[in-house]
Nucleic acid binder design. Structure first.
Lengths: 229, 229
DNA sequence: CTGATTTGTCACGGAACTGTCACAGATCCG
DNA sequence: CGGATCTGTGACAGTTCCGTGACAAATCAG
């Protein structure tokens, strides 16, 4: 089944698009904001993404850039604005096509089919490398990408914090003692275990919504820390 | 050089398009009829074809079908008719995009670049320049051509910078340590890692819009550098 | 051959990070 | 309840890390 993700804040338009696409035999998903769309696409990637430009919060251009950062999915902008500037900017941001609302559903699907013909194939071209990602609840950690995100938003962490988080994430759900963490993250055979506390605290400030009541990076008194999903 | 073939019977429009495309740095060829266009493309294949629908003799739809029969060149229809029926028919015939006259040249070239990113690899008779292009965000890198473009505009880079960029682009999304870069780009087993910094800095001056706040070539403190998609 | 470009080295200053400490809460246990 | 233990956190200084301008050697183009 071919899936299409529609990112559009206007409920009426989104619904109309979803219904029309389903009529055409597509499996259609909707998202009302860029953030939601990005999350959905990361979790459950569709074959195509339709995106509006005027979105509350993160706008369409930024949405396109973020989608493109780790996904080669064909992106079609469906916008009310018929302005060269917007069109060029959207295409430069990584969109594959740009259509102006209102658009005939037949045209839209014809454009999707045209895009599918061009969908990047393995071929002689360079197949983009997949960067592995550990997912723990709303956290996404890519050890190779040196990147941490919460709910799709990048979170800046230091190297030590990053290593600590990777270590915890690799054993998500298991308790790691301060001693184990000192060894694995710092390479210390012995040392002040308070060091771990401090870094855990700093990490919490960054990755927890409410650092005083951690949901993911929890303390097990007398035992150590664990990262839970 | 990137070549574009314009098949359009109206002399004024064809000339205007050719001049505008040349201004944008393309090598532009014209043909007044479908027959002539097909002949030209067979002899001397362009990288893109723009085609009008209303042509004397063989019409645009047929022209597209015949082009497609033995060529994977990206085809953009440039037509005065804004009609769902025509759009769908043209796309079904094998066109990749459809724009309505009059069209801003900036939009047209942006659409060409978007198509280049999707250019099919392999296939018969495709223009040679299209094959190996690494695309990272708004950057396009042809490892064979030794050419880098940002938003379609050629960027002059030195050989070392180019190798560095290719290395980073091949592993886009992954962090590469200074050590890895020294090895892969310079072939040094050991050496001053500051060398990498300097070249990264120089590269940023060229490929980043705001080199002080890089969007693509980012530093991961303590880890190395990576090229963001 | 000569001037221009590219490349590698160095040093410096500022920014970011790390580890330590002290202290205040929190939790446990008798 | 009260002491003992464990944990969270703010402050701080030393260290590391990074960006950059300057400059000389090497290379290239004409």
């Amino acid at each position: 089944m071919t899936a299409v993700l529609v990112i559009e804040d206007d409920d009426r338009i989104r619904l109309a698009l979803l219904l029309a696409l389903e009529d055409e035999g597509y499996d259609a998903l909707g998202a009302a904001t860029a953030e939601e769309g990005l999350r959905v696409q990361r979790r459950n990637p569709a074959n195509y993404v339709l995106v509006d430009l005027m979105l509350p919060g993160l706008d369409g251009f930024e949405c396109i850039r973020q989608l493109r950062r780790d996904d080669d999915v064909p992106i079609v902008v469906v916008s009310a604005r018929d302005d060269t500037h917007d069109i060029v900017a959207a295409l430069e941001a990584g969109a594959d096509d740009y259509v102006v609302k209102p658009v005939a559903i037949k045209e839209l699907t014809a454009r999707l089919r045209a895009l599918r013909r061009r969908a990047r194939t393995g071929g002689a071209g360079h197949a983009p490398e997949l960067v592995p990602v550990l997912v723990v609840g709303e956290l996404e950690i890519s050890p190779d990408g040196g990147e941490v995100r919460r709910a799709g938003q990048p979170v800046p962490v230091t190297r030590t914090e990053f290593r600590l988080l990777c270590e915890l994430a690799e054993h998500a759900g298991r308790v790691l003692s301060r001693q184990q963490l000192l060894e694995r993250v710092w390479g210390y055979d012995s040392g002040d275990e308070r060091l771990v506390d401090v870094h855990v605290g700093r990490l919490r400030q960054k990755i927890e919504q409410d650092p005083a009541n951690p949901r993911h990076l929890v303390t097990l008194r007398g035992l150590g820390y664990k990262l839970q999903r």
